[in-house]
Design a protein around this nucleic acid. Structure first.
Length: 887
RNA sequence: GGGCGAUUAGCUCAGCGGUAGAGCACACCCUUCACACGGGUGGGGUCGCAGGUUCAAUCCCUGCAUCGCCCA
């Protein structure tokens, strides 16, 4: 016998271990089934499970489990990425506690330490994924720093280089002065900051008392100014263009140039140009052949050809000093408060400096073209579709991708330099040496580039590198072009776009057919969850409290397309209740000996209730399947919830009760078998969402030893039975109507009353007879008389009775001593008014001649029927009202 | 400034060219032999505003307002 409530913590680990150990998660490369593949977006190896992970992995697991059940060879490829900067920071922080830096250790020893850290702590996220019930093929788990994936990285780097799609260049990068590395645009966060706009007067050379005033938010960069720009059509400055300015403090002569970058409406209309420290100025500098004067070092301290007293100053100290000196010189025009956007490193949290360095770049604009086309031509489809625009926008304006990073943890750039700086890009040192020997005509000493590659460089190869590429493995042949990528919109740029570029370039095919973009999980007020706001909901805590299945079901049920998820704990509680409801329904079945019957044929059931429920069951399975096929997780979850609770528990099991306690043994046996079968089907349909409770019930309900997760999805044709449905709908309507009136008339819930029916037509009279037991029980009746004679009704009326109209029939409920005649009259009048309102609505349509002429015939017919029904009901109600007055 | 999305019951959200729905919350009743993590019943909505298309608009189109996100 099942326990009274379901206890997730006792059940979950048991099933997970069994699934994993039995190989139930494994894909089968030699299978003759059609493959279905999802590449798991690799979480950071440093990561631990947050709500966003819980959502994305739940949805992926739902898809994988569903497709496994519908007969696909499902591969969910798991793994983690090495998270270059994040991981390096974690280990550096540990070293800091021991008061040493990575430089004390040296590169090789430091990397060894990182691997040790990974071995000890890197498994957190994958352990948590197991708790979530995720069913990837763990045996295939990969890590972006694996030998195989590293080989793929080298192969790609060298190939792109030799194809001219990857090159070394000196450009401005986003420099993180704390982490001492370049970071990509995407790792820069623009924050609105209250700062100042300083207006400096630069004296124009050779024109006494003539100044040109420039405005800046970063005064310290003036040390590197190489020009002042004004708009070519700005008449205020036309006479100054071509003149020179004597740069204060530095003393350098710099030109005044005309350039359209300068906006006459902003500030003074004149702008200082610092090509080495500003992205826009860099472009202006190139147009006018201006020198790029670097005045900052890797720590963003002042360096270079500047007055000695500034050397070594921090950028902000330098700023203060410069402003003070400019003021002393009488060149400070004014200081304004100014709100502007300042770039911050998303990892380090410090202000980023544009800095001139040598870096490796991927020619993203070239690679983007086919990636763009793949989406335009529908080879890859976004769901929801509108995310295409975001993708297009990014791809059409894509910049060269800076892939080198000045850190140690990552894939070291496979480039070697000869004594004269000539570069040799090869997969191995030996090949580089050979290339160098060929170049120089002798063996030379080579030094390897110390940079490593952006983590996203290796992640971009994930869809094929995990399958064995550059080796031509059977897995690669079978599973590449995966079926769907499931991810959040926040990494469309970071990851999706780059996988598309690399996948198409190296595999010749898109990496995925579908891209499903899901929402962000927010708190119940719609705020983004963040540690600083303190509104983070920990999925692990929720799983402890309500069970994993409840958390999974909640996330799936809330995953409506195109809308963020506002998660309130109450929702999880509600779906925990749903799990308990299912558990108790199973318990009820068990108590009533509803055991699965071998060879049970749902098509062969005879009882109306059973014909009805098997039809509804098949319909639900189809509905859920269709919803999942369209990535409508919310609709899929909703349909199962509605069926399990609203149909199976609320009605079918209630209908079964009188049968179980009745004397018709054949009906009893059939109903038991049917109930067991329906419950089994529910377990199947619910399994992708709630894998643990369903697996547990599967094992407990039939004493079966096979695993639910490997069984076939229910697929039945020809079970839908519209006559059974019509019949049971009528029964439901009768019971609901009686219950409604009982409640409204304040008939005590415990009191059993009679129900007399008059005017039933022949067919429904038969239904009434068939389901009399069931109506009696569910409407809590003492007696049910489907064919009450006129005198019987009249007699009932003499003592007071309530009346209801269900289709052509009038139901009379004698309520001697209980009935309040006035209240009943009001109730009937209200009913009549409601019906009249409906009739009026239909009449309004018919009053319009164009409706009959132009509307679809079936719509016209439907309205005609509806009017007839309402009209008949109105008549019946009016009769009832008259009877009441006559009583 | 550009783009995208949202606006439907108190809250969170489905929905859809032709009878407005769910869950939660709320009110009342119920320890009825699966379940109080439960059962039953009920109240509550000019579907953001203004135009347009249509026989018919909550739904399609245009504009506006408000909110949110992304990009500059």
């Amino acid at each position: 016998m099942l326990d009274k409530t379901y206890r997730p913590s006792e059940v979950e680990p048991k099933h997970y271990e069994r699934w994993e150990q039995s190989g139930a998660f494994a894909a089968h490369t030699d299978s003759d089934k059609v493959p279905y593949t999802i590449m798991m977006p690799p979480p950071n190896v440093t990561g631990s499970l947050h709500m966003g992970h819980a959502l994305t992995f739940t949805l992926q697991d739902v898809l994988i489990r569903y497709h496994r059940m519908i007969g696909r060879d499902a591969l969910w490829q798991p793994g983690t990425d090495h998270a270059g900067i994040a991981t390096q920071m974690v280990v550096e922080r540990q070293l800091e506690a021991q008061k040493i830096t990575r430089h004390d250790l040296g590169r090789d020893k430091f990397i060894e330490r990182v691997w040790e850290w990974k071995a000890e702590s890197g498994g957190t996220i994958t352990r948590q994924l197991r708790r979530l019930g995720a069913s990837p093929d763990w045996a295939k788990e990969r890590f972006t720093m694996d030998e195989g994936l590293s080989a793929a990285v080298r192969e790609v780097f060298v190939t792109l280089y030799k194809q001219g799609l990857l090159y070394r260049d000196k450009r401005l990068v986003n420099w993180d002065p704390k982490l001492h590395t370049a970071i990509s645009d995407l790792e820069v966060e623009q924050r609105e900051v209250k700062g100042h706009m300083w207006h400096f007067k630069y004296p124009v050379e050779g024109m006494a008392d003539t100044f040109i005033t420039v405005a800046t938010t970063r005064p310290e960069t003036m040390l590197g100014d190489s020009a002042v720009a004004v708009h070519p059509e700005d008449e205020r400055y036309t006479h100054l263009v071509g003149k020179m300015v004597r740069l204060p403090i530095v003393g350098r002569l710099i030109p005044i140039v005309a350039d359209e970058y300068s906006d006459p409406t902003k500030g003074t209309g004149a702008v200082k140009i610092t090509p080495a420290h500003d992205f826009n100025d860099f472009e202006v500098g190139k147009r006018h052949n201006l020198p790029q004067i670097n005045v900052l070092d890797r720590d963003a301290k002042i360096t270079g050809d500047v007055p000695a007293e500034y050397l070594g100053l921090d950028r902000y100290e330098a700023r203060k000093k410069i402003v003070a000196v400019i003021e002393e010189l009488g060149l400070l025009d004014k200081i304004e408060n100014h709100v502007h956007m300042v770039p911050y490193g998303d990892r380090s949290g410090v202000v980023i400096e544009p800095w001139l360095t040598d870096q490796w770049y991927v020619d993203a604009p070239t690679l983007a073209k086919p990636a763009l086309e793949a989406v335009e031509t529908g080879k890859t489809k976004f769901t929801p579709k509108h995310w295409e625009n975001t993708y297009y926008e990014w791809m059409r304006n894509i910049q060269p991708w800076c892939v080198s990073r000045q850190i140690w943890w990552g894939h070291q750039v496979p480039a070697w330099y000869g004594p004269d700086g000539a570069v040799f890009v090869e997969k191995t040192e030996a090949e580089a040496a050979a290339a160098a020997a060929a170049h120089y005509g002798k063996t030379v000493e080579l030094t390897r580039d110390t940079d490593v590659l952006d983590t996203w460089f290796s992640s971009a190869l994930w869809p094929f590198s995990t399958l064995g590429w550059p080796e031509q493995t059977p897995e690669l042949a079978r599973y590449y072009t995966t079926d769907v990528l499931v991810t959040g919109f926040d990494i469309i740029f970071f990851w999706v776009a780059r996988m598309m570029m690399m996948g198409i370039h190296f595999m010749g095919e898109v990496p995925f057919k579908d891209i499903y973009i899901h929402a962000l999980v927010r708190d119940e007020k719609g705020q983004k969850m963040s540690k600083s706001k303190g509104n983070v909901i920990d999925p692990l805590v929720l799983m402890d409290k309500y069970g994993t299945d409840a958390v999974r079901f909640t996330l799936a049920a809330l995953a409506a397309q195109g809308r963020d998820i506002k998660l309130a704990e109450g929702r999880v509680e509600g779906y925990r209740n749903f799990a308990t409801k299912l558990w108790n329904a199973a318990r009820f079945c068990q108590m009533n000996e509803c055991a699965p019957v071998a060879g049970f044929d749902p098509k062969a059931v005879k009882e109306t209730v059973n014909r009805w429920i098997v039809g509804k069951t098949a319909e639900t399975a189809d509905k859920v399947a269709a919803a999942l096929d369209g990535y409508r997780f919310d609709a899929a979850a909703g349909a199962t919830y509605q069926f399990v609770w609203g149909t199976f528990c609320d009605w079918y099991l209630e209908f079964a009760k009188p049968i179980f306690s009745g004397s018709d043994e054949a009906a009893k046996a059939e109903t038991r078998a049917t109930a067991a079968w329906v419950l089994d089907m529910i377990l199947h349909v619910l399994h992708p969402f709630m894998p643990f409770i369903t697996e547990e019930l599967w094992a407990q309900m039939g004493g079966r030893s096979d695993q639910l997760m490997l069984r076939d999805w229910p697929k039945f044709d020809g079970l839908h039975d519209s006559t059974a449905e019509e019949e049971m709908d009528w029964v439901v309507r009768v019971i609901s109507t009686v219950r409604g009136v009982r409640s409204e008339m304040n008939v005590p819930a415990g009191a059993q009353v009679d129900l007399l029916v008059s005017g039933l037509d022949g067919g429904r009279a038969g239904w009434a007879k068939t389901h009399a037991d069931l109506i009696v029980r569910l409407a809590r009746l003492a007696a049910f008389e489907p064919h009450a004679g006129a005198d019987r009704v009249a007699q009932a009326f003499s003592h007071g009775a309530a009346q209801m109209v269900v289709d052509e029939a009038t139901l009379v409920m004698p309520l001697a001593g209980v009935i309040d005649i006035d209240k009943e009259r009001v109730r009937l009048e209200k009913e009549i008014a409601r019906v009249e309102n409906e009739i009026a609505k239909v009449d309004k349509k018919f009053a319009n001649p164009d409706f009959v002429a132009k509307a679809a015939p079936e719509v016209v017919e439907e309205n005609r029927e509806r009017r007839a029904e309402w009209s008949a009901a109105k008549e019946k109600l009016q009769e009832a009202l008259q009877r009441l007055s006559g009583a």
